[in-house]
Amino acid sequence: MRADENMDYHLARLLILISHFGGPGSKGIDGITKLAKLDFLLRYPSFTDRLLPSRNASWPLGCEPNDNEREAVESRSIRYKYGPWDNRYYPLLGRLVGYGLAESFRGRSGVVVRLTEPGAQLARQLGQSEEWQVVDGRSEMLSSRFNLQGNRLRKMIYEALPEVIETPS
C-alpha cells in the first residue's frame, strides 16, 4: 500500500462494514472474497444500485447513491483477484487486528474476521457520526440483503455486472 493513501479512511470503512457482519462473538466474515465483494458493493453504490431489485432491496433513506457517485470515474471498476483494491485487504486487516479492533482466525473459506468489543464500540461511534452515517446505513442494508457466501456474491456480481470482469486487469 502506498504511504500517500488515506489509510484511516479505509480502516474506518472496513470497521463499519465488518461491524454489521462480524461483531464480537459472531461467526464473522468468512473469507477475503466475501469481504472484498461486500466492500466492492459498499464502495461502488452505482453497481450495487443495479443489484438491489434482484435482492428485493432498496437503499435506506438518505443512503442512495448521489449524482457524483453515479458518474464518478471510480465507478468503473478494474477487476483484480478479490476486488478493485485487493492487495490492501491483508495489511488493513492486519492493522485492525494489531490495534485490537478485530480478530482473525482460520475458517471454512480462509481467513475469518470479526470485531472485538473495542472494535465494535468504535464502529458504533463512527456509524453514528454525520461523516459516516451513509456508510453505516449502506453496510446495514448489505448485511440484511447480501449476506451470502463469497463465491455466491462473486457469481452474482459477475453475472449481473459483466463489465466488471470484462475490464482488463
Score class of each variant (00 low, 15 high):
A57S: 14
L42Q: 07
S144E: 03
E64A: 12
E159K: 14
R43F: 01
G137V: 07
L126T: 01
D67T: 11
N151D: 10
P168D: 03
V135P: 00
G22N: 10
V111Q: 10
F21V: 03
M7N: 04
R124P: 07
R55L: 12
E5R: 12
S75N: 15
K37P: 00
R2V: 04
D4A: 13
I29E: 06
N151R: 08
W59T: 13
L11M: 08
I16H: 00
H20R: 15
G23Q: 07
F40Q: 10
K155V: 14
Q149E: 13
E103T: 10
D49L: 13
L15V: 05
E74M: 10
D49A: 06
K155L: 15
Q128K: 12
E166M: 09
T33A: 08
D136V: 02
S169N: 12
R13C: 02
P24A: 15
A123R: 07
P118I: 07
E166R: 11
G22F: 05
A120T: 05
L11S: 03
R13I: 11
L42C: 04
E103N: 06
E71S: 12
I16W: 01
G110M: 06
F105I: 09
G127M: 07
E163D: 05
V164P: 03
A123M: 04
L92Q: 04
I165K: 07
A36P: 00
G28E: 09
Y9M: 10
M1A: 14
P24I: 09
L93N: 00
P91L: 05
P24V: 07
L96G: 06
V111T: 14
E159W: 03
A102W: 01
I29K: 13
R43P: 00
E74W: 07
L126N: 09
S144K: 13
I32H: 03
L15W: 00
L93D: 00
V164E: 06
K34Y: 10
N66W: 13
G100W: 09
Q128H: 11
R138M: 10
N68A: 12
D30I: 15
L41P: 00
P162S: 13
E71D: 15
T167D: 00
S104Y: 01
L11C: 07
K34G: 12
E69M: 05
G127H: 12
E131H: 05
A57T: 11
L115M: 08
L52P: 09
G100A: 08
Q121P: 02
L92Y: 01
E74R: 08
D4T: 14
L122H: 02
L93Q: 01
D30C: 13
Y89K: 05
P65T: 09
Y90R: 10
P24E: 13
H20M: 09
Y82S: 05
R43W: 02
E163M: 01
